[in-house]
């Protein structure tokens, strides 16, 4: 999921700069959101360990954020896309920490 958050961030930046077409941005963000939702749903079925709940919440947050970026890109709103994409590094950092924490255990 860290990779999808990073991908979405780069795609949004590149779309704002006019380097990638809208259809590409839409396809990538849709796929990213789909993967995040799938991962959250999978964790929803896992035993209710705090770390699993935390990860589930972060995945759900990522899915929502990607869907919102996708929606503003469809509206051709570059400023809103850049604003929403600016929040992705924070989500990525949280996901990264969670992943590192899980690996350490």
């Amino acid at each position: 999921m860290v990779s999808w958050a990073a991908t979405a961030e780069m795609v949004a930046q590149r779309w704002t700069a006019g380097d990638v077409p809208t259809a590409y941005a839409h396809n990538t963000l849709t796929k990213g959101a789909q993967e995040a939702r799938r991962a959250a749903a999978k964790l929803g079925q896992a035993p209710a360990a705090p770390v699993a709940r935390e990860a589930q919440a972060r995945y759900a947050e990522l899915a929502v954020r990607l869907a919102r970026i996708d929606a503003v890109i469809a509206d051709d709103d570059g400023r809103a896309a850049a604003g929403l994409a600016a929040g992705l590094p924070a989500i990525r950092l949280k996901l990264d920490r969670l992943q590192s924490g899980c690996q350490a255990r």
Binding site: V2, S3, W4, T7, E9, G18, D19, V20, Y24, E35
Partner: peptide
């Protein structure tokens, strides 16, 4: 950026990096 290759679309960014839209 921490991007892994999960689908082909992500590989397109490799040439967007150096060449922008042309890439």
């Amino acid at each position: 950026h921490g991007i892994r290759v999960d689908q082909y679309g992500q590989i397109a960014l490799t040439l967007v990096g150096p060449f922008g839209e042309w890439g």
